[in-house]
Design a protein around this nucleic acid. Structure first.
Lengths: 125, 125
DNA sequence: CTGTATCCGAGTTGATACTG
DNA sequence: CAGTATCAACTCGGATACAG
């Protein structure tokens, strides 16, 4: 684990965020919050995620207690995924970040444009 | 960019979050918020980050307008980094996530322990 | 349908060395 | 002190094939 002991100051927080803050986890949580209980292939399609990553991410999220898995012993198999209470609270925090992103999209683009134009002048050789 | 078009449902937001939501960016913003204006090596030590990643992340953050860079033309060189207004607002959102992580550390550990113990029983062959 | 196992290319990160 | 360049190691994600 290269990331477990980044620095004493952040320690576990960083670890948790690293685990639960990756791209697919976040997307999965948002998607589950929006669409409610969903099935495997449903999520797969909705997110455009590979089976492998969906399986891996879902399992990690389940292990961390953010996602609830319900397996119906029928044929063909049927499994439903839903957010737990903790998953819901996590979504709230993530959503805040999402809103921030929306609110600051323009500002970021502007900052980038300005930064890039500044650099362009310099490399005008 | 492999991540730009994850899925039509999330688009740009996902892109921004991917850019600004990575491990080092988050840590850097938190650290700058806590300790205020900081210098390069100061951050390097504080976070236990490599020169390369610090340089890369700082530059990206500066380009996105989250971090302000002040370069003093003295010898030896002195450069100070600080959060911009946008960086501050980003920190607010990120902090919420940090608090969530702190608040749910125990619950996550518990969930993991339970999940793992459940699996241990099963593989008792 | 819901997964798991394997292979493999691509992107990321860190160590090291060097510059201003 | 504050970076940048380069290279090797590692991780991640996707495709594929197979299993329950």
């Amino acid at each position: 684990m290269t990331k477990s002991e980044t620095c004493p100051e952040f320690g576990r927080i960083n670890e948790v965020l690293a685990r639960v803050g990756d791209r697919w986890s976040v997307l999965l949580v948002i998607s589950l919050a929006r669409h409610g209980v969903s099935r495997f292939n449903e999520l797969k399609h909705r997110l455009g995620i590979s089976q492998r990553m969906l399986s891996v991410t879902l399992k990690a999220l389940e292990r961390d207690g953010l996602v609830l898995r319900t397996h119906y012993p029928v044929i063909p198999p049927k499994v439903e995924y839903a957010l737990s209470e903790m998953g819901l609270s996590f979504h709230a925090a993530v959503d805040a970040l999402g809103y921030w992103a929306v609110d600051n999209l323009e500002a970021i683009d502007a900052a980038r444009a300005q930064y890039d134009s500044g650099r362009t002048e310099e490399q005008a050789d």
